Computed example of a mutant assay.
Amino acid sequence: MLHNKKQLACGLFALVSAALSSGAAHADIVASIKPVGFIAAAIADGVTPVKVLLPDGASEHDYSLRPSDIKAIRNADLVVWIGPDMEAFMPRIIGQLPAKKSLEIADLSDVKPLLMRGAEDHEEGDAAADHNHGVMDQHHHHGEFNMHLWLSPEIARNAAVAIHAKLLELMPRSKDKLDANLQYFEASLAQSDKDIEKQLAPVKDKGYFVFHDAYGYFEKHYGLSPLGHFTVNPEIQPGAQHLHFIRTQLVEQKAVCVFAEPQFRPAVIDAVARGTKVHKGTLDPLGMDVRLGKDSYVKFLSQLSSQYTSCLKGA
């Protein structure tokens, strides 16, 4: 009887050891914002779900973590985010996690050479903006670089490769599926890139203004012709001098479109565009209407491309 018990115990120990050595079957993945979730969900599709912290309609610039968010981060096996210059609500809680549980996209070695410098805060251009500069810094620190990294297809691909590597460490038993997901993501992104290039080609030379300085990576990648932005920080209204400059550009018909955003629909855009022939459109830099899934990132890029095209063509 004792011998049988020993055999049973040894057998159970061997099973547990094998399970542990083969990696977890499930991992809790948390993404800071939805576009980061799009990339993570593409790699994790059919393997493990991805939770996004930032709710639809909220801004990554001024979000405050809820108790449920903090719990989700602490319980996560992997947290994927852009970096402290984008998600100001993240660094304190991220600092409490083991380094292996955090993937900071802006800190990846193959992403750093691709970073674009950000616009300067003083572009707001008048005393009101200068007066509020201290308030601006409290809410959202604009670092040296533009941190809207998810709007670069190239950086998104590098992020996907890094997420794939992290998930392989967590779930090596799912290697075949994870490998297939990465291969699918890279192929669909390459095809989407060609399709978007073709879609945007007729409007590349048309000037426009965006609401805030978020789209540089997308614009550079596809060779678009932005004339400027209303504000660097969407929490701060643009100054009078800067608005006068934009108004002049619109009156002289150097711009064919001005873009608002679902997260920010300031009356200032309507006021500046009033009485001109400029069209008004909306760009959604967070993909509010896109659901997480295998194809969500390429759907997000395609939607953004259509938003540009529609307004620039005068639809």
Rank of each mutant, 00 (worst) to 15 (best):
L2E: 10
K6A: 12
Q7P: 02
L12E: 06
L12V: 14
L12Y: 07
G23F: 01
A25M: 09
A25T: 12
H26T: 09
D28H: 14
I29E: 05
V30C: 02
I33W: 07
V36T: 11
G37A: 13
I39K: 03
T48D: 13
P49V: 06
P49L: 12
K51G: 00
K51Q: 15
L53M: 04
P55I: 15
S64A: 14
S64M: 13
L65C: 09
R66E: 11
R66Q: 14
P67A: 15
P67R: 13
S68K: 13
I70G: 01
V79C: 02
W81M: 04
W81L: 00
G83D: 10
G83S: 15
G83F: 05
P84G: 06
D85E: 12
E87Y: 06
A88R: 14
F89I: 10
M90R: 03
M90G: 14
M90D: 04
P91T: 10
I93V: 15
I94S: 05
L103E: 09
E104C: 13
E104M: 09
S109I: 07
S109E: 14
D110R: 13
K112L: 04
L114R: 07
H122E: 10
E124C: 14
G125I: 00
H131W: 08
H133Q: 12
G134C: 00
M136C: 05
H139Q: 09
H139K: 14
H142I: 13
E144C: 01
A156Y: 11
A159L: 01
V161T: 05
V161L: 03
A162F: 07
A162S: 14
H164I: 03
H164E: 08
L168F: 03
K175V: 08
K177S: 06
L178Y: 07
A180F: 01
Q183M: 05
Y184M: 04
L189M: 14
A190G: 08
D193G: 07
D195K: 12
I196N: 03
I196D: 07
K198V: 10
A201W: 00
D205G: 15
D205K: 15
G207H: 02
Y208D: 03
V210I: 11
A214D: 11
Y215C: 06
G216L: 06
F218I: 08
E219I: 01
Y222H: 03
T231V: 15
E235G: 15
H242Q: 02
H242S: 01
F245T: 08
I246W: 00
I246M: 12
R247Y: 02
T248Y: 06
E252W: 00
Q253S: 11
F259A: 07
Q263H: 03
R265H: 13
V268C: 05
I269C: 06
D270G: 06
G275M: 02
K277L: 02
T282M: 14
T282Q: 14
P285C: 02
V290F: 01
S296L: 11
F300V: 01
S302K: 05
S305Q: 03
S306Q: 10
Q307M: 01
L312E: 04
K313Q: 15
